[in-house]
Design a protein around this nucleic acid. Sequence first.
DNA 1: TTTGGCACTCCCTTGCCGTGAGTGCCAAGT
DNA 2: ACTTGGCACTCACGGCAAGGGAGTGCCAAA
Lengths: 337, 337
Amino acid sequence: MLEDRRLAVLRAIVEDYVSTREPVGSKALVERHSLGVSSATIRNDMAALEEEGYIAQPHTSAGRIPTDLGYRAFVDRLSGVKPLSGAERRAISDFLAGAVDLDDVMARSVRLLAQLTRQVALVQYPSLVQSTVLHLEIVRLSATRLLLVLIADTGRVEQRAVDLPAPMSEESVAALRSRLLSAVIGRRCADLSSHVEGLAEQFPADERASAAAMIATLLEATVESEERRVMLGGTANLARYRDSFSTTLEPVLEALEEQVVLLRLLGEVSGDVTVRIGHENPVEDLQTTSVVSAGYGRGSSVIAGVGILGPTHMDYPGTMAAVQAVAQYLSRILDEN
Amino acid sequence: MLEDRRLAVLRAIVEDYVSTREPVGSKALVERHSLGVSSATIRNDMAALEEEGYIAQPHTSAGRIPTDLGYRAFVDRLSGVKPLSGAERRAISDFLAGAVDLDDVMARSVRLLAQLTRQVALVQYPSLVQSTVLHLEIVRLSATRLLLVLIADTGRVEQRAVDLPAPMSEESVAALRSRLLSAVIGRRCADLSSHVEGLAEQFPADERASAAAMIATLLEATVESEERRVMLGGTANLARYRDSFSTTLEPVLEALEEQVVLLRLLGEVSGDVTVRIGHENPVEDLQTTSVVSAGYGRGSSVIAGVGILGPTHMDYPGTMAAVQAVAQYLSRILDEN
DNA sequence: TTTGGCACTCCCTTGCCGTGAGTGCCAAGT
DNA sequence: ACTTGGCACTCACGGCAAGGGAGTGCCAAA
C-alpha cells in the first residue's frame, strides 16, 4: 500500500520528466497527477526513493530526476509495451512492403524506425553465418582472376575478386563452379568448410592451387563478413536531445561511426525486446544513453538485431513497441522469401 | 602593386580566420604576417575589401571575417592545391588496397576521406547506367518466383526478386537465362532496352508474360537504381564545428540523411576538383557550408563523385588535395578490375 | 600613399541582487 | 504510524550595471 504509492510516485516522476525534460518537484506532481495526498507526503516518499537510489537531485533545491535504476524499475515493473495503433501498424507494413532488395529493406527499416521513435535507429544485416546458400556464381574476369558471388537465402549477396596463382581455362572454371555449387547449395554458411573439404584435390595438379584459392576465399567470405554491416539512421534526432548527452555530441557521433561499437550496442539480441539503460550499456562513450533492441529472424531463430539509441529519458513503452513491431515485420519479410 | 597587397591581406585574413575561427583585426594581422606596412594601412585596405564584398564585420568594433565571395576569390586566385605528403599518399593507397569488395571500397573511402579532412565525407557508388554488364544470373526460387542478379563491371551488384504471372519450368528459366545473358553481357546498362527488345516474343505463349516480367524488372533495375546510394561518414566532425553552422546542427544532419540531397550536393561532378562555397550550394539548409567534390571513373569517363562537406571556413587547399587524391585512387582501383 | 594618434563603439565578462521553485524538518492532526 | 500545513533555507537563474579590451574610422602630418 505504502510501497504502492511510492512506485506510483516513481512512475509519475519518470513520466513527467520524460515529457518535460525538467526536474520534477513535489508540488508539480500532485497537481498533474491525482495521487490523493499532499505535496508534503510526496516529499517524504521522494526522500525515501532517493535513499533507495531511484531518483536524484541535480542540486539542492531542485526537483528530482530518475536515475538509471529508476528507469530500470519503471521499465521492469511499471510499464507494459504500449500497443501500436492500427494506423501505425499499417504504415510500417506498407512502407516495408515497397522494398526492392535487401539493401532497400535495411534502408527503409532504419528510416522507418528513426521516424517512429524519433531516435537514432540501428538495423543489422542478417547474419551470413546463419543463412543458407541459395546460389553461388563464379565469373571469369580473366585467366587468373575470378569473381565469386554468393547469394544467401536472406537476400545477402557477397562478392569477392580472387587472384589465381595459375591460369585456369574456361572449362575448368565451369567444372569448379558446378562442383562447388552442388557442394554448398542449401547448406548453412557456417557449415561450409566441412562440405568443401578435399574438393580442391579433385582438380589436376596445375589447377589445384587455383581451386584451393577460390575455396579459401569462399570460406573467408562466409566467416569473416559475419560481423560487418550495421545500418544507421536518424542521427539528426541526436541534435534535438543535444543537452541530454555528455556536454557535447562529438563522442556520441564518433562512437556511432564504428561498426564494432554498433555491434556491441545491439549485443546479444534475443527475440524479445531488450532495454539497456545508461551504464548498463557496454560502450563507455554511450553510457548516458539507452538502447532498445530486438532480434528478428526466420521462424524462431534470431538472425540479426534491430534497435534504437536515445537519451535515457525516452518514452520507453512507445519505443519498445516500435522496435518490436519493426522486428516482427522484418521477420515476416524474411519469411516471405 | 596596391591591388597585390589587398589580395595578400585577403589571403592573410582567410588563413587566420580558418585557423583561429575568430574575426581577425588589423593589428593581429600585421603581427602574424610580415606585410611590411602598418596596421593603419591594413585598415584602409580592409575598408576597401569590405566595400568590394570580400570581407565583413560581424558587428562594429570587431575584426573581419571573409564572406563567401572572399573565399571564392581565395580559392580561385590565391591558393593552389596543396600537394599531399608522400606518407599521406601511401596511407591512402594502403588503406584502399585492403578492400575486399565494392561496399568495402566505398566504406573505406568514406572513412579515409573523413579522417584526412576532418569533415563529413560523401562517396557515391559508381553509376550503374554508365557501367557495363559483367554477368547476369537468374536463380529459380520457386515456379513463380525468380531472383535476378546483375553484376556490373564496376563491382556493383543489383538483385531483384520477380514474381511471375505464370509458372516457369526449370528448362525455360535456363533458356531465358542464356538468351538474356548473351543479349546483355558486355553492354552498357543504359543501352539494355534496345538489346532485349522483342526477346520475350521468342518464348511460347504461356511463358511469354513471365519472360516479359523478368525483362521489365531488369530494365527497371538498370535505370531506377542509378540515383541510389551515396555513402556518408564523419558526421562526428560536424559536432566540432557546431557553432559554425546555423544555430543548431539539426537541419544539417537532417539534410544529410536524404539521399536526394546528397546527390544534389555532389551535383555534376567533373574530373577536376570543384568547390561550392556557402550560398553557391544548391541545398537550402546547407548554405552555410561548403562542398568540395571531384569525379572518379574509369579512364576519362566520370562514373561517380566523391566529396566532403564542411564549414565555409575550411582549409581549402588541403581539403581539395585530399579529395582529389581519393578520387584518383578510386579511379585506379576501378581500372584494376 | 602611408602612418601615428585619438576618440568612439560595442561585445563580453564579472559581480551583484532579487525572485521563485523546491527542499527538509518539525509539530500538530488524524 | 502516517499525513499534513507551516516555515526557514538553499540555490539556480535572469536582469542589470560597470569595466576592460579589441577593433574601428578618421584626421593631420610625413
